[in-house]
Design a binder for these strands. Structure first.
Length: 485
RNA sequence: GCAGGUGUAGUGUAGUCUGGUCUAGCACGGAAGCCUUCCAAGCUUUCGACCCGGGUCCAAAUCCCGGCACCUGCACCA
């Protein structure tokens, strides 16, 4: 079984995620995060947000819905509501606009009008010459069905970024008219994917964490530190290398200091979340695959099932978005700093939260000698940090364990109590849920008020005093840390 | 979207070809209990499924049609 299939099975069984509305057959590309997954997802988002807030980023939370004007300016409307025709005889697909070239006809506004032109003008497939062609709307943005009379058409956002750009002037003011300005936003984006696949890897509603870094194009406020940690890089010519980011910058492999800085930052964030550095690379887009707004782009890709899957895209958007919004809205997007007036350039690290979550699960999964699965999630993002068990339900052990649970859960709510089944089964359950520590009350507890604490990854067990356990959250607890040093 | 394949308890599967003892079997899992002095032990009880709709037939999990979903490949991927 493939790694991804195995994770999908565990995810459904243990409650990380599953396909939504299964009782009605499900809808492709829509998934629900379960009890473990929703906490895991939130922890990943928090770790991402913290890492940017800590360097002065401002966070915003803009609407999921925006008006047509926004996406006309961003270029999404123009690019993604194209009319497409398909030939039923040879399966060829092409933009309808291409077929109209040279006919002197204008581009129709709907598929219905286009079909009228097809029948009246006898247009034929550009590939095989058949007249069996059908025109459809090819729309990667979801339109919102109902609008009031006279109101602008509304769409679900395909990215969160535009919510930042449209409020740029308010945000630069919040930053007290200084550059660089870093704005972050997390939330859902919507894309009407032709073929959603691989569970949460390709969704129609998905979660992103986008960072927009606004800079003076003539200054270099960000540069990577001199860390010697090698990072896997693949340049636009397909050449692979592993070297420190600072070396990649000085040798010109990465052209821009800010790009290099955010590659380094992203690498640290992802490996900190538990993504295997050996299965992580940064791949530069070829010129022909760059998005319409982008002049350079490095994708962080995680290896899953022998396939590299994009999990973060760090894109140089230049002044594209602000310039477009300035010309479409008629509102200035310039900043005046000192005696210079200019439109800032933008670097955008855009994180696919669902894919990052999938990669952390795939890279954290290991199988024991006995064939049991352990999710070695990083302690910081594990949904639950501690589980508390009585060795047996009898002889008053349950009562002691329940009491410890009630004391501890006031300090750290992310703990679990379990007395069902054998002790081994309970450890195994928590291993699969990724819980880093388990505490067990046994007969010795009655004598000396100690419990055993077991570390998930090493399987080692130590005794610590109950009072020491409940003195603070298990992750930062000095007694726990010193016990396993 | 195209082509091929697949769809049985929460999960993994048997059964489908060759319609009928299938009132759908098994394993894992969940719940309750017994036992057990630390890593999915054992025992008892229990929970739980034929993707949806139509058709053929005396009879459909099984054959046919349509839909939905999943998988693989292609196309798409701002």
């Amino acid at each position: 079984m493939s790694d991804i299939q195995d994770i999908i099975e565990i995810a459904k069984r243990r409650g990380f995620f599953w396909q939504s509305s299964g009782i009605y057959g499900g809808v492709s590309g829509l998934y629900t995060y379960g009890p473990l997954g929703s906490i895991l997802k939130r922890n990943i988002i928090s770790a991402w947000a913290d890492s940017y807030i800590s360097i002065g980023a401002l966070m915003v939370d803009s609407p999921v819905i925006a008006q047509e004007d926004v996406f006309r300016a961003s270029g999404h409307l123009e690019r993604f509501t194209d009319l497409i025709y398909e030939c039923s005889s040879c399966k060829f697909r092409q933009k309808f606009e291409t077929l109209l070239e040279g006919t002197g006809k204008g581009v129709p506004s709907s598929a219905e009008e286009a079909m009228k032109i097809v029948s009246s003008s006898g247009l034929k497939c550009g590939n095989c010459g058949s007249d069996k062609i059908a025109v459809t709307d090819f729309n990667l943005m979801f339109p919102v069905g109902t609008v009031r009379a006279g109101e602008s058409r509304l769409f679900l956002r395909p990215e969160t970024a535009q919510g930042i750009f449209v409020d740029f002037q308010l945000l630069i003011r919040q930053n007290r008219d200084k550059l660089p300005l870093i704005v972050i936003q997390t939330g859902e984006g919507f894309r009407n994917e032709v073929a959603p696949r691989n569970a949460i890897i390709r969704l129609r509603e998905f979660s992103m964490g986008e960072v927009e870094v606004f800079m003076d194009p003539e200054s270099h406020p960000f540069t990577p530190d001199s860390s010697k940690e090698p990072v896997n890089l693949m340049d636009r010519d397909g050449k692979n290398m592993a070297l420190p980011v600072s070396d990649a910058l000085s040798s010109g492999i990465v052209a821009d200091p800010a790009m290099a800085f955010f590659i380094q930052k992203t690498h640290r964030l992802l490996t900190g979340l538990g993504i295997d550095p050996g299965k992580l690379r940064f791949r530069q887009h070829r010129r022909d695959e760059l998005a319409h707004y982008s002049s350079d782009c490095w994708d962080a890709e995680a290896l899953m099932d022998d396939t590299w899957i994009e999990i973060v895209g760090i894109s140089d958007r230049g002044t594209y978005d602000l310039t477009r919004h300035q010309s479409h809205s008629g509102k200035s997007m310039e900043v005046k700093i000192g005696d210079k007036t200019f439109i800032p350039k933008v670097l955008e690290p855009a994180h696919g939260i669902d894919r990052i979550l999938m990669a952390t699960l795939v890279h954290s999964r290991r199988v024991t000698d006995k064939g049991y699965v352990v999710m070695s999630l990083k302690k910081e993002i594990a949904p639950y940090k501690l589980a508390i068990f009585p060795l047996f339900k009898k002889d008053g052990l349950s009562e002691i364990a329940v009491d410890i649970f009630s004391r501890y859960s006031k300090i750290d709510p992310y703990c679990i109590y379990d007395e069902s089944g054998s002790i081994g089964k309970r450890y195994a359950r928590q291993d699969e849920a990724g819980t880093p520590y388990c505490v067990t009350v046994d007969y010795q507890t009655k004598d000396d008020h100690t419990v055993t604490i077991r570390e998930r990854d090493s399987g080692k067990q130590k005794r610590i005093l109950i009072d020491d356990l409940v003195s603070g959250p298990v992750l930062g607890n000095k007694y726990v840390i010193s016990a396993f040093d």
